[in-house]
Lab assay of single mutants.
Amino acid sequence: MFYPNSPQTSPQLTQIPYGQQYAMMQRQIQQPYHPFATTEPQARLYPYHYQGPIQQEQGGFITQQSTAASPQYVQMRVTPVDQSIMSGYPNQTANGSSSSSFNYNIHPQQQQQQQQQQQQLRHHAMPVGSVPLQDDRYRKQLIVNYLAPDVTSTDLHELFSRFGELDGARIIYDKQTNMSKGYGFVYFCHAEDAKEAVERMSGYEFHGKWLKVGYSTNPLNIVPSNSSPYVHAGSRGAAG
Rank of each mutant, 00 (worst) to 15 (best):
Q65C: 07
I106G: 09
A233F: 15
Y173H: 13
G182S: 06
P11K: 15
E192H: 11
L166Y: 00
G203K: 02
V213L: 10
A194H: 00
Q42W: 03
A37Y: 07
G96F: 07
N95F: 06
M126T: 05
P71L: 05
Q72C: 10
N178E: 13
Q118M: 06
E199A: 13
G234N: 05
Y187Q: 01
I85V: 11
T154H: 05
Q72P: 12
Q20A: 08
M126D: 04
R137M: 02
Q176V: 13
T177L: 03
M126N: 11
Y3L: 08
D193T: 13
F2Y: 06
S227N: 08
Q119E: 06
F188G: 00
R27L: 04
E57H: 11
T67Y: 08
R200T: 06
Q58K: 12
I172M: 02
N145H: 00
Q56A: 09
G88L: 07
S216K: 01
P80F: 04
Q114R: 13
Y89N: 06
G237Q: 12
Q111S: 06
V81Q: 09
S87R: 14
A43E: 12
Y173A: 06
N105V: 03
F163C: 03
A23P: 12
M201F: 06
N226Y: 10
A233Y: 15
M76L: 04
G19W: 12
P4F: 02
P53F: 04
L133P: 09
R27T: 03
F185R: 01
D136H: 08
R27Y: 02
G19A: 09
S130N: 08
S97I: 10
Q21T: 07
P41K: 15
S97Q: 10
I106D: 03
A239Q: 15
K140H: 02
G60I: 02
V213G: 00
I106P: 07
I54W: 06
Q134S: 06
L159K: 00
A239W: 03
D136Y: 12
K140V: 02
P219I: 01
H107V: 05
H124C: 11
Y46I: 04
Y18R: 15
S235Y: 14
Q112T: 08
G60W: 02
M25S: 12
T67K: 15
A239H: 09
N103H: 13
S70F: 05
L121H: 10
Q26E: 10
D155M: 05
R27A: 03
Q176A: 08
I29M: 10
P41V: 03
A94Q: 09
Q20P: 12
A125F: 13
S227V: 08
S10N: 08
T177W: 14
Y204W: 15
T38S: 12
A194Q: 00
L147A: 02
D82V: 10
Q75A: 08
G203H: 03
K175G: 11
E40K: 15
P90I: 12
S202L: 15
M24I: 11
H107P: 09
I29A: 15
T154W: 03
Q15D: 07
Y89V: 12
M24W: 13
F163V: 03
Y230M: 06
L166M: 15
K175W: 09
M201V: 07
P132R: 12
Q115C: 07
D174M: 03
N221M: 14
D135T: 05
E57V: 07
H232L: 12
A148C: 12
N226G: 05
L45I: 14
G19L: 04
T79H: 12
E158P: 00
N91G: 10
P90R: 12
V78L: 08
H34I: 07
T154N: 07
S6I: 06
S180R: 02
G96Y: 04
F36Q: 15
Y104D: 03
G129I: 03
R137D: 00
Q112S: 08
D167C: 03
Q8R: 14
V223L: 09
